[in-house]
Design a protein around this nucleic acid. Structure first.
Lengths: 145, 145
DNA sequence: GCAAATTAGTCCGAGTTTCGGACTTGTGCC
DNA sequence: GGCACAAGTCCGAAACTCGGACTAATTTGC
């Protein structure tokens, strides 16, 4: 896994990710929205029009049972809702509920603050470049794309 | 957490990371080196000269007990070794052992292969730019720096 | 059309992981 | 030397995760 100092591209991606995640989650919790990290990681993958359990399982790379359990918790905490999928009666769509939107709202300022800090450190040009390159890279690395 | 399509910089970092991690780990396992993901995530943070448990705990953002348990497993699998820290008799250094080096060796080809694929998709210039920018970003986001 | 094969999701139980709290041992400071 | 602090470990409880088996709905094949 390791490939000498500074050369492990995977780790180079993970460290800033983890920093962002911690900062946002800490603020969200501080505002009274309890949410363990495993729930947050599933929650953030819910698409704008809702996502199926299977999709979330694939995107998060965990089993369907695990996703089911995590969605149960998110649901009973009021962050998400299960609605019938109009296209398939077997499936249900997981959609963000009102309290979930509030939690997102609670995290946004810190998200932007961290981004601003990064932008300041890197300079605007490199920051924007980073966004573009990553968006491009996600095209070929998202298991659920 | 989410901030509209493509706008969540955290997720943009995480998705390629996860892809890299999965690919490398799959190959490492295929070659007979069993290693659960939580062990791998700790393992990859071990520094060239070894790391203390506390350092690993901080870098991985989990408790000392958890790290202790994970290192136990890595140790009994032969991937790491605990050696006394010459500077502090309370502490022990976790260092990569022979089998750990073999596991790293086993993953390197796939690591390079994935990197090559990314380089091809992005183009050499953007790929190199990505590396540079991330290395720069890690400077301010690594909790153990 | 309709039976067979497949897919979406759930239930259940076992093994594992993680952590808070309390403890031991060693360090550093006065 | 004594006292606050830091590095790890032990213990027990709670939470997490998954394999296997199941139900319900959809798609395939003939």
């Amino acid at each position: 896994m390791s490939d000498g100092p500074g050369a492990n591209l995977g780790l180079l991606l993970f460290i800033p990710y983890r920093a962002m995640e911690s900062a946002v989650l800490e603020e969200v919790r501080r505002q009274g929205f309890e949410m363990p990290i495993n729930q947050a990681r599933v929650f953030q993958r819910i698409g704008p029009a809702g996502s199926r359990l299977g999709e979330l399982a694939e995107a998060s790379q965990v089993s369907k049972q695990t996703i089911g359990s995590i969605v149960d918790q998110l649901e009973s905490a009021g962050y998400v809702e299960r609605v019938p999928d109009p296209d398939d009666a077997r499936a249900r769509l997981v959609v963000v509920a009102e309290r979930g939107r509030q939690a997102i709202e609670a995290g946004l300022p810190v998200l932007h603050q961290v981004e601003a800090r990064w932008r300041e450190h890197l300079g605007v040009a490199k920051y924007e470049q980073l966004r573009r390159i990553l968006a491009d890279l996600v095209e070929i690395t998202d298991p659920f794309a």
